[in-house]
């Protein structure tokens, strides 16, 4: 609880003001295109290419959102510049939540186990194996895509949740690498104390290392959750079936239908805005948790 004393009393200086201005600028540049998504989603489809220099939604309408949520018939959708293919938003939302939650839970836990071994335990071949894991990050996805797809087919896992989750469920090189670096960065002292108290390795991992790394674990889990949420090509190939189709795959119907065609901007942006809500909520809720965890671990 030494935080209160860490900072020297803030004196308003020119540098601080400049820093704030720079920070505000970063925020603005960050936010504007995201705002543009919302603005387009709320605009009338006929105005989209016409009034491009207007900051607020043109011809304000909620039709795009209603269309994505399936509140119009196919004919009405087509008349509104959309496609006739309906999207079952709530089902796809559920599927996205299932896939992202279970995948990230498995991935984080198993990656943490091996990352701990790589960072703390001694065993022959450790560094070589770790470097091998790292190399997996450098393999272009094009190479593994088709073999993995065929494997999933052979397992009869096409159009199943486990098929979508399988490749990342036990590890990704990224998560193992991330957690290993964090385990390296945290203090050994508590673990050493536990060892002297006679605790076994799994016990230390479970009771000491994991609680200490909650900030890192939750940060990673959130990041991976979102990455999974936004993943497209793999679930497109493996999970075409309605029952397991995730949101990103469903949103693709708003992209251009023909080689020359333009995307259905209104539908795409409204769909994106809607699919953004769950990830944003998760980030804000669990992101706060992560911050609190940092403050309560009490070792700094």
């Amino acid at each position: 609880m030494s935080r209160a004393h860490t900072r020297t009393a803030p004196t308003i200086q020119l540098a601080t003001i400049l820093a704030w201005i720079a920070f505000a600028l970063v925020m603005l540049v960050t936010l504007f295109p995201v705002y543009w998504v919302l603005r387009t989603a709320l605009s009338d489809y006929k105005e989209i290419y016409v009034q491009t220099f207007v900051l607020w939604p043109v011809g304000f309408t909620l039709d795009n959102f209603k269309r994505v949520l399936g509140m119009f018939s196919a004919e009405q959708s087509v008349a509104m510049g959309g496609t006739a293919t309906g999207i079952n938003f709530w089902l796809y939302l559920r599927n996205s939540i299932i896939v992202s939650t279970f995948l990230v839970a498995g991935q984080t836990f198993f990656s943490a186990m091996s990352a701990y071994a790589f960072a703390r335990l001694r065993f022959p071949g450790r560094d070589q194996l770790f470097f091998l894991y790292l190399t997996a990050m450098m393999i272009p996805g094009v190479v593994t895509l088709i073999p993995n797809f065929i494997l999933i087919r052979d397992l009869k896992w096409l159009d199943t949740f486990q098929g979508i989750m399988a490749p990342g469920f036990l590890m990704t090189p990224f998560t193992v690498f991330f957690l290993r670096q964090f385990f390296l960065g945290i203090n050994h002292e508590l673990e050493e104390a536990a060892t002297l108290d006679g605790a076994s390795i799994p016990m230390i991992f479970w009771r000491v290392a994991l609680p200490l790394s909650i900030p890192a674990l939750s940060t990673l889990a959130i990041l991976q959750f979102i990455a999974t949420w936004n993943d497209y090509l793999w679930p497109f190939l493996v999970g075409k079936n309605e029952a397991v189709r995730v949101l990103t795959v469903a949103l693709a119907i708003f992209q251009s239908q023909t080689p020359q065609g333009a995307p259905d901007w209104g539908g795409l942006m409204a769909g994106t805005a809607l699919s953004l809500v769950p990830t944003l909520v998760i980030f804000l809720v669990f992101g706060r948790r992560a911050v609190n965890a940092i403050q309560f671990t009490g070792f700094r």
């Binding site: 293919t85 497109f236 693709a252 119907i253 992209q255 251009s256 239908q257 023909t258 065609g261």
Partner: peptide
Amino acid sequence: QAGWGDYWNG
């Protein structure tokens, strides 16, 4: 149905 690019990929 899938859009042009995804269609041929699929």
